[in-house]
Amino acid sequence: MLNYVLRRLLIAIPTLILISLVIFFLVDLAPGSPASEIPLTVPPDVREKIMESLGVNQPVWVRYGLWMKQFFYVEPLYGIDAMFGTDLAQGAPRLISYSSRVPVFQYIGERLPQTLTVIGTAYVLAVLIAIPIGIYSAYRQYSWFDQIGTFVAMIGFSVPTFFTGLLLIIVFTVNLHWFPSIYNTSLSVTDWASFKTQVQQMTLPVITLALFNAAEISRYTRSSMLENLAQDYVRTARAKGMGERTVVLKHVLRNSLIPVVTVIALGIPTVFGGAIITEQVFKINGIGAALIGAIQVNDLPVVQTIAFLTAILIVLFNLVADILYGLLDPRIRYD
């Protein structure tokens, strides 16, 4: 098992290097330059100095090497320093945003909590409601519950989040005045009243995202349950005198969850992608908004770093999914 994980991590290294190359050079090739953000009134020699200080004038290979070094070496050192109060980094130059001049990781660190609160809550909620719905839909296939579930899931899955989001805003903000449509990032939860406000402002984005994810996960759960309910071992369990609860929630569910867990794990990184739109709709100041903002002002380091972090998450959760698969299915062996 440990061997397997180590081997997978080793294989991940060339994969990630390749991805980093693609990300870095593609973003670099994109039209537009950080120089276009400098006002035209700035004299040429100053402009040249600014460009130099940004490191933009160096050859692309050098910039790539520096980015990699900062990403994998300097920034982790700063991270350790921040955590333990050490001084390992010794003032080495950090990965800096072109536009805001703050370190990229600090910037991401400021944006991440909003994303995690909203997106994380939405995903957990989606899983928690999707699995029971999937189980019951399969157990009572073609019942009213199942038919309505299928219908709602189809809608949730096929209607884009910007549409659901806007629809919810029209109904619940504009018409009913129940929930705000704009997410106030600076709100800090200190007491009951601010907690209530926080829950209120999270409601609409969370519902928007949860509906989308729950639709997908409940479909997976349902089809996996259906497949397993038809298996011979289910009849064996019933012939042993096991109750329906044991048959469905132990024998069938345990088998059905194997592919579902994989799908859930693989879905975690892609959730961030889907969040970009939702964050725009509800004006949430999270990672997605940071990425869009950075693209608009040619803030290459921020774009490259967020894109690469997403790639790392995808590789990581692929590994997590494979490990979970093996833990859940005794037939899988790691060697």
Binding site: Y233, R235, A237, R254
Partner: peptide, 13 residues
């Protein structure tokens, strides 16, 4: 009860 196909009649997990 003993069923026909022992390969599928036991729960694999």
């Amino acid at each position: 009860f003993v069923f026909q196909d022992p390969m599928t009649s036991l729960n694999p997990v």
